[in-house]
């Protein structure tokens, strides 16, 4: 038993992995569930708003303005305030206001607002001539959205998704401060409240590595899905070799 440590609350170095790794797992679960919801809602919502705009497939000014406003409100609230303000709603849905389930609700709302804007932006950068081509080729509105809009925007959507995932890792840390678990919870309870610098450093290292991995994976996927990028052909071949 060591008596040299000035603070008996400090976690021994050997125990840090046992503390941090399950926390990382919780963070990944929170972000994973959130991002699934975000993509499932954000893509149709972004595509809908894009096509309600002027020149879109279902041009409708009133609907466009309304939906745009709702998304803007979601985008403009700082996450901490959003999270606190919707606690009654969160409790209604999940029956609790702490834990992973409770964190997923505000994270999904913030994430959907974020991603919807990204989808809109990505779709706006697809040349509108593709929609004319698709129409002239006999496509239905849904087929046109899928093939002439979303499919052409895939690299840009993946780039946006990468930024979105990183933002959600950050939000999960904020949610951690109110007891949602995960890396953020460990950083606050051990690193901040108990002045355990070793744990603090460990959480920082883990977050930096996680974010870097997400970014690298995202960048690689963007290259792979862009036929006119120099490395795309190579990465596709490598992937094909890896799967087979």
């Amino acid at each position: 038993m060591s008596v040299t440590a000035g603070n008996s609350n400090l976690v021994p170095i050997g125990d840090i992995p046992a503390l941090v790794i399950p926390a990382l797992g919780e963070t990944l679960i929170m972000v994973g569930i959130t991002m699934t919801i975000v993509v499932l809602v954000g893509i149709p919502l972004g595509a809908l708003i894009h096509n309600l705009a002027r020149g879109g497939l279902f041009e409708n000014r009133a609907a466009h303005t309304t939906l745009s406003w709702i998304v803007s409100i979601g985008r403009s609230l700082p996450f901490l305030i959003l999270m606190a303000s919707i606690i009654p709603f969160t409790r209604l849905i999940t029956g609790t206001n702490i834990g992973i389930a409770a964190a997923v609700v505000p994270m999904s709302i913030a994430g959907i607002a974020f991603f919807t804007r990204i989808v809109e932006n990505s779709l706006r950068s697809v040349p509108p001539s593709f929609v004319r081509v698709a129409k002239a080729s006999g496509g239905s509105p849904l087929q046109i959205i899928a093939t002439a809009q979303l499919s052409e925007a895939i690299p840009s959507l993946i780039g946006g998704l990468t930024i979105n995932i990183i933002a959600m890792i950050e939000y999960s840390a904020i949610a951690g401060t109110i007891g949602a678990g995960g890396i953020g919870y460990v950083a606050v309870t051990y690193g901040y409240q108990r002045f355990d610098n070793t744990v603090m450093v460990a959480t920082i290292v883990i977050l930096v590595i996680t974010v870097a991995l997400v970014q690298l994976t995202g960048d690689a996927l963007v290259r792979m899905t862009t036929p006119h990028s120099a490395t795309a052909a190579r990465s596709r071949r490598r992937l094909a070799a890896a799967i087979s």
Binding site: P127, R132, V133, A136, P155, P227
Partner: peptide, 18 residues
């Protein structure tokens, strides 16, 4: 349905890049 009886060739930007 009717558009199927008309094939359209567009100016150079008509092919889907992906």
């Amino acid at each position: 349905v009717a558009r199927r009886t008309i094939g359209t060739v567009f100016q150079s930007d008509g092919l889907f890049s992906r």
